[in-house]
C-alpha cells in the first residue's frame, strides 16, 4: 500500500441517522422465563408454570420483533472531527533499501542449505582432529570412535581400557551414524540461526557455537555418556569443536547469499497460494 492508499478511517459520513436494532424487553423476559422454568425444579411447580408462560411469551414477542421485518430505530449521527494527532517525532530514514517502503534487516542472508553443507564439512574436520587425538595420545585411531559409540551403545560401555583401542565394527558403524546425524542437526540449527548473525558466520560457527556447545556438553556428558565423561580430554574436545565451527563457517561464507523472505507475507513463505497474498510486501514502484 502506498501512502495514497491510506484512506482516512473516520470520515464525515454525510448521514443524518444510522439504523440500529430497536431496544426490546423480550430477550430478558424469555431469559427470566427459562430461569424460572428451571427454578421450579427446586422450588414449586407453579414457578415452572409461570416460567414456561413467560418463556413462550418472550419467544413470541422476540419473533414479532424480527418477523416479518426487523424493528429498527434511527439514531441521529453526531458528526465529530476525526482528530487523530500523534506525538511521535519524525526521524530520518537510512537508505538501506530505497525500493522498499519499509525494510526488514537483514536484506540478504545465507540459505539453510549453507548451514547443512557447513555442518557436513565441519563433521569431517572434527573427525580428523578426533582421530589425530587418538593416534597422538592413545596410539589408536579407534579410541575416540569407541568412546563416541558408548553414547548410545551398551556394548561399547562394557569395553575395557585394553579393548578401547581396538577396532569394533558395531561401535564404528554406530559412531559414524551418530556423528553424521549430530553434525547434520547442528548444521541445520546453524543454518536456521544464520539470519541472526548474517555478517559474521565464522564468529557464530567458529567461536560462539563451540563455546556454548562445549559448555552444554561439559554439564550433561555425565548423563549421556559416562564412559566418555571419564576418559575425555577437554582440551582436544574443545579444539575439535572449534575445528568444526571454523570449517563450517568457511564453507558457509563461500555460499551465495539469498534475499531474506521475512518481507514476504506468511502465506507466501509457507507456500500457500492465496488471493491477495502479496499484500504484505510493498515496494514504492509496485504498491
Amino acid at each position: 500500500m502506498s501512502s495514497m492508499d491510506a484512506q482516512p478511517v473516520v470520515e464525515k459520513s454525510g448521514l443524518d441517522t444510522v439504523k440500529l436494532p430497536a431496544p426490546t424487553a423480550w430477550p430478558i423476559a424469555m431469559a427470566f422465563g427459562v430461569t424460572l422454568l428451571s427454578a421450579g425444579l427446586v422450588t414449586s411447580e407453579t414457578v415452572s408454570i409461570l416460567g414456561g408462560i413467560l418463556a413462550v411469551a418472550g419467544a413470541v414477542g422476540w419473533f414479532l420483533d424480527v418477523l416479518p421485518h426487523e424493528k429498527h430505530v434511527s439514531v441521529p449521527v453526531e458528526e465529530e472531527a476525526g482528530v487523530v494527532a500523534v506525538s511521535r517525532r519524525k526521524v530520518e530514514r537510512l537508505p538501506v533499501a530505497p525500493e522498499l517502503a519499509r525494510a526488514l534487516l537483514p536484506l540478504e542472508t545465507y540459505p539453510i542449505s549453507a548451514g547443512v553443507k557447513g555442518g557436513l564439512a565441519g563433521a569431517v574436520a572434527m573427525a580428523v582432529l578426533a582421530c589425530l587425538y587418538g593416534i597422538v595420545n592413545q596410539g589408536s585411531i579407534w579410541y575416540p570412535i569407541n568412546l563416541l559409540a558408548a553414547t548410545i551403545y551398551g556394548q561399547s560401555m562394557a569395553l575395557t581400557p585394553a579393548t578401547l583401542t581396538g577396532f569394533h565394527l558395531d561401535s564404528f558403524l554406530l559412531a559414524c551414524l551418530l556423528h553424521l546425524i549430530t553434525s547434520l542437526l547442528v548444521g541445520l540449527m546453524y543454518g536456521a540461526m544464520l539470519p541472526m548473525f548474517p555478517r559474521r558466520p565464522i564468529l557464530l560457527g567458529g567461536v560462539i557455537a563451540p563455546v556454548m556447545w562445549s559448555g552444554l556438553i561439559h554439564n550433561i556428558l555425565g548423563f549421556i555418556n559416562p564412559l566418555l565423561d571419564q576418559k575425555i580430554d577437554w582440551l582436544w574436545f574443545v579444539a575439535s569443536q572449534f575445528a568444526f565451527g571454523i570449517v563450517a563457517g568457511l564453507v558457509v561464507v563461500k555460499q551465495a547469499r539469498v534475499r531474506t523472505r521475512q518481507v514476504l507475507p506468511f502465506a507466501m513463505r509457507a507456500g500457500f497460494e492465496t488471493s491477495g497474498g502479496a499484500g504484505g510486501t510493498r515496494s514504492k514502484e509496485n504498491p
Binding site: 501512502s3 491510506a6 473516520v10 464525515k12 448521514l15 487523530v84 500523534v86
Partner: peptide, 21 residues
C-alpha cells in the same frame, strides 16, 4: 458514522503516518 475501510493491521497508524503506512 461511516463504516471504516482498513488497509493494514494498524489502521490508525496509517492515518497518523501517511508517509510510512
Amino acid at each position: 458514522a461511516t463504516l471504516p475501510t482498513v488497509n493494514s493491521r494498524r489502521p490508525l497508524w496509517d492515518i497518523k503516518h501517511p508517509e510510512d503506512p
